[in-house]
């Protein structure tokens, strides 16, 4: 079982990202789950979304999770929420920030000794899509770090999932995924 927790702000696309990832994974024959904690969260409120992936039918519906991966798609959440809660020694972090990984860990001691990768999904999204929607670039970074799928296969799959959007926006998302894939450190 692979488990992922997303830290996001409502409106940044974590739910769409989690569902998009689940959709891609599902096409490869694996079982998936994508869900989120909503509450009555308003745009901008801190929230979490989740993915589970397994070779077998997923029966577990508890919200509690010891994640294998933690995605942080808003830079400030590293300081205002505990992104390390319920982690395990092998948990891998992919965090959106304009800082280097060393600078980030120095600024948030909780990340000390953990497997942390950084990428500026906000900047990438602004420069490609034109809006600070950091969900698709995070998935590009995840493909690089996890080696889950070939990036070309992943982009083709995401094209299908984003097909309702105008072609220009779809292309911009593909650029964003590729850039995050190339730039994550």
């Amino acid at each position: 079982m692979l488990e992922i927790r997303w830290h996001s702000r409502a409106g940044q696309g974590a739910v769409t990202g989690a569902k998009g990832l689940a959709d891609v994974v599902s096409t490869t024959g694996k079982h998936v789950q994508a869900f989120a904690f909503y509450g009555s969260a308003k745009r901008g409120a801190a929230m979490t979304a989740y993915n589970r992936v397994d070779d077998h039918e997923i029966l577990n519906h508890e919200k509690y999770m010891n994640p294998d991966f933690v995605f942080v798609i808003d830079p400030a959440l590293v300081y205002t929420t505990d992104v390390t809660i319920n982690d395990k020694p092998e948990t891998v972090y992919i965090i959106t920030t304009h800082m280097s990984t060393d600078e980030l860990v120095a600024s948030q001691p909780k990340l000390n000794g953990k497997k942390v990768y950084t990428v500026d999904c906000i900047k990438i999204a602004q420069e490609t899509i034109g809006r600070a929607i950091p969900n698709t670039p995070m998935l590009g970074a995840f493909m690089k770090i996890s080696g889950m799928y070939d990036i070309e296969f992943f982009k083709e799959s995401m094209k299908r999932i984003l097909a309702k959007l105008p072609p220009k926006i779809v292309d911009a998302n593909m650029d964003a995924i590729q850039r995050a894939y190339d730039e994550v450190k």
Binding site: D23, H31, F35
Partner: peptide
């Protein structure tokens, strides 16, 4: 169906 646990949880 369970609110959110089923209604907002995407599965195959």
């Amino acid at each position: 169906q369970d609110g959110f646990l089923t209604s907002h949880t995407a599965q195959g």
